[in-house]
Structures are given as structure tokens and as C-alpha cells.
Simulated assay, not measured.
Amino acid sequence: MTHKELFTLFIVFIALFLFGMTIMRAGLHNLAGDRFKHILEKMTDSPWKGLLLGAGITALLQSSSAVMIMAVGLVAAGILTFKQSIGIILGTNIGTCLTLEMLAFDLSAFIMPLLLIGVFLIFLKNQITYFLGCISFGLGCIFVAMHGLEGLAFPISSLPFAHSFFTWTNNSELFGVGLGTVFSAIIQSSTATTAIAMGFMNDEIFGLTSGIAIMLGANIGTCFSAFLASVGANHSARLVAFAHIWLNLLGVILFFPFIGWLSEVASSLTHLPSLQLAHASTIFNIISSLVLLPFVHWYAKFIIFVHGRKN
């Protein structure tokens, strides 16, 4: 297979992964209707409730970006206050880990049943079955993409340029963070970025510390979606986006010196490389969110101090 064919397939599988995520999220979102927005409005009177709510809705919608964009919109509309949104922000980072934990397992045997069931349900003349079909078909596409990316890991790593690139990633954790940040911002998905790293780890192209560095960077890059959603919105809505950026940025800065420790803990939990990275992501996001939770009031003041009050 030529270099051009390898990278073309790589792009195709990334596109398929994002397509599957989009279809699955659309099915989940429409299946729930506007109930999520109503719940967000009614159950954010304390940071703890906001965290649990943000984690739960993100786990259901399989998209921290979607929940963050929703939170920005609710604050822009004056339905939520900026301080109420912080609990949701903390929860979204935890909720998104469920996807990675699921993707870490080899579920290739379910690909064909999921696709066939999805197609069958989509063509039934019923709104509920249509949305369920979208969920099933989207999940099948995600597993196809994961399987394909894992199969491409070794051929791509054997290319001279790619080999040098992966060597830099393995030799420099800072480079890995930068790579994860840029790639996640471009494709608008921290999940996809980390999932790609999982595929390369399964083929022993990346070590666990490199995968963790990329995962940390992906958490920064995913903030770009909420930032874009806040452009042109009112000042309070922009503060939500800034709070999301600062949360992930500070979390990465604090955890960066402890990548080795995080690697040891994740390695002690399982021998599967992809599952180790999923566990590392879960540990990072849970600790980052829970550490900040008691200081939500002061964190809100910090964001307002740094980015100014409404004029």
C-alpha cells in the first residue's frame, strides 16, 4: 500500500468515526427532545447537582462539546447564571470518559449486528425506532473506524516521516500534549483524538505516557467548540467558555509533572494498553473536577477577575 493510500484511509476512518459520533449523538439528543434543557434549567442550584447533571447528560449524549454548547446557549439566554454553569462544566469532563472506557474493549464482533439493526430501525416508519436506529448505526460506524485505525497503526508507523514523528511523541511528553491539543481542536473531538492514540498503543507504536500526554492535550483542544459557540454571545456566555478552557488548562498543567505516576496507576489496573489510557483519562478528569468542586465560588471570581466584568 502506498503512502498516499495509507493516509487517505487514515482520513477516511477519522471521518467515519466523527460521522458515527454525529449520528449517534443526533439519535440520543432527539430521543430525549428538549427534556435535557429543562433538566439543566431546574437542577443546577448547587455545584454538586450541576456536576452530577453534567456528567449524566454528557454520558447519555456522548459529547462534552454538545453539553458545553448547550450550557453556553442557556447562559446567553439568561436561563442559567455563569456560576451555575461551572458545575455542568466539571461534570462534562467526567461524563465523556464513559465513551473511552467503552471503546477500549474489543467489540468488533458487534459491528455487523449494530449496523444491520441500525439500518433496519431507520427504515421503519416510526420516530422512536428511527432515533434508536441512528444510535445503533452510529455506534457501529465508530467501531468500524476504531478497528480500521488500529489496523493502520503499524503500516503508518513504518513510514520514514511518520516514524520520526512518533519518535518525537515518545521522547517528548510536551510534544504529545501539543499534538493532542492541535488535533483535537481541528477535528473537534477529544474522544476521537484519544481513541486514535488507543489504536496506536494497541500496536505498541505509542507508550502509555505518550498516550496520556496526547489525552491531556485533547482535553485542551476540545475547549475550542465551546469557545466558537460563545463568539458573538454576551459576556456571561463567554465566561462559560473561558471557565472551560481554564479548567482543562490548569488540570493539564497540574497533572503534567505526574504523567509517570498516572501511568503507573493505570498500568496497575489492567494489562490492556487501550484500557489503561481510558482509565488514565477517567482518573485525570475525576480528580480535576472533584478538586475544584469545593472552590466553585472562588473559581468563578477568578474567571471574572481575569476576563473582566460585564461592561
Rank of each mutant, 00 (worst) to 15 (best):
T2C: 10
H3V: 11
F10H: 15
I14N: 08
F17V: 07
F17M: 12
L18V: 00
L28M: 13
H38K: 13
E41F: 00
T44N: 07
D45T: 07
D45A: 12
W48S: 03
L53Y: 01
I57C: 01
T58C: 00
A59T: 08
Q62H: 11
S63K: 09
A66C: 06
A66P: 00
M68E: 11
M68G: 08
I69T: 14
A71V: 10
V72W: 12
L74F: 08
L80K: 07
F82K: 01
K83E: 01
Q84S: 14
I86C: 06
I88A: 03
L98N: 10
E101C: 10
M102Q: 03
F105I: 02
F110G: 00
P113D: 09
L114N: 06
L116R: 08
G118F: 00
V119K: 15
F120V: 10
F123W: 09
I128E: 13
L132K: 02
C134T: 06
S136Q: 05
I142H: 02
A145I: 01
H147P: 10
L149F: 05
L149V: 02
F154R: 07
P155H: 12
P155V: 11
P155W: 09
P160I: 11
P160W: 12
F161L: 09
F165A: 04
F165C: 02
F166N: 01
F166L: 09
T167Y: 11
W168R: 11
N171E: 13
S172E: 15
E173N: 14
L174Q: 11
L174R: 00
V177G: 05
G178Y: 12
G180H: 04
V182M: 10
A185V: 05
I186W: 13
I187V: 09
I187M: 14
S189H: 13
I196D: 02
G199L: 04
D203H: 12
I205D: 08
L208E: 00
G211D: 02
G211T: 00
L216Y: 04
A218G: 12
I220M: 11
G221V: 06
G221K: 00
C223G: 07
A226H: 08
F227C: 15
G232P: 01
N234M: 04
R238V: 13
L239T: 08
V240C: 09
W246D: 09
N248W: 07
L249W: 15
G251F: 15
I253M: 08
L254D: 01
I259A: 09
G260P: 06
L262F: 01
S263F: 00
A266G: 01
T270E: 06
H271I: 06
P273L: 02
A278M: 10
A278F: 10
S281G: 10
T282K: 14
I283M: 02
S288A: 10
S288E: 06
L292D: 01
L293S: 15
F295G: 01
H297W: 13
A300E: 14
I303K: 05
F305D: 11
H307R: 03
K310G: 03
